[in-house]
């Protein structure tokens, strides 16, 4: 296991959870055809929370966070993001998507654009930011993820870790209030996982609201304020990390933890 990937002290001074609700999911259900993937999901995320979602493959954890920015459509229940309810109204969807950043397992950078163009595209076209300003913001965030020197290269010329950091910078350029991470380190070589996790920790230290689907339990212990365990499309258990790892309540959670931490 890669608990080793987080080997530095995490500064928790700015990680403050407020009373303001960022995401409210109530009685949400989703089906793929007749297959019931998400069942009665109830979840309230407060501003400033760092939530790690884990669970066996096929448990619906990716589907859950993909519902939050409507990459997947839910069929029953309610999802309210920043006070806007997700319905089939395209205007609401685009508004929420521009407020919610997302990082994917396979980065999904645009290979025909340079790193800088990847980062300035959405600010220029969605936010209507002037090009020069958008480039300055992009360079600021590229500096933050420590690859400003790659700005004029194409994604294909970068390593996997670098690409994922560009993907994070690309999301940050839209100044999102919430960040979703869908297994951001699963497609990376072990030595690159650390650089991506470091970037994510820095983001958490600045007080970003984060939902991460990940198997990096070291990251969960160091950063998360809440860990959610999902199985068969349901939230089985959630707790603060220390309790979650040391004193799991459900048998499923115990089995899962013993499998991923056992070797």
């Amino acid at each position: 296991m890669s608990e080793l990937a987080v080997d530095r002290d995490v500064d928790r001074s700015k990680m403050k959870v407020s009373d303001e609700v960022a995401i409210q999911i109530s009685q949400m259900n989703k089906w793929y055809g007749t297959f019931h993937v998400l069942r009665d999901i109830n979840l309230t995320v407060y501003r400033g929370e760092r939530i790690v979602i884990c669970g066996p493959s096929g448990s619906g954890k990716s589907t859950l966070i993909r519902c939050i920015n409507r990459l997947e459509e839910h069929q029953a229940g309610q999802i309210i993001v920043d006070g806007t309810e997700l319905t089939s109204d395209l205007k609401n969807i685009d508004k929420i998507r521009s407020e919610v950043g997302m990082c994917f397992q396979h980065f999904n950078l645009f290979p025909h654009l340079t790193i800088l163009e990847n980062c300035t595209l959405a600010p220029i076209w969605v936010r209507k930011t002037p090009k020069k300003e958008a480039e300055e913001v992009a360079m600021h965030y590229l500096q933050k993820v420590k690859i400003p020197e790659q700005a004029n290269k194409y994604p294909g010329q970068l390593s996997g870790g670098q690409q994922q950091r560009v993907a994070i910078a690309r999301s940050l350029c839209m100044k999102p209030r919430i960040m979703l991470f869908d297994e951001p380190t699963s497609a990376l070589d072990p030595e690159m996982i650390k650089e991506v996790l470091d970037t994510m920790i820095e983001l958490a230290e600045e007080g970003m609201t984060m939902l991460c689907v990940t198997h990096e339990m070291g990251f969960a212990q160091a950063v998360a304020n809440r860990v959610i365990f999902m199985d068969q499309g349901q939230i089985v258990e959630q707790n603060e990390p220390r309790e979650f790892f040391n004193n799991p309540q459900s048998d499923r959670t115990k089995l899962f933890l013993s499998q991923i931490l056992g070797h």
Binding site: L71, K95, R97, S98, F104, N108, L121, R170, S171
Partner: peptide
């Protein structure tokens, strides 16, 4: 992923 990347940026 290209469609999703574009969608996720709004």
């Amino acid at each position: 992923g290209q469609y999703e990347g574009a969608d996720s940026l709004g």
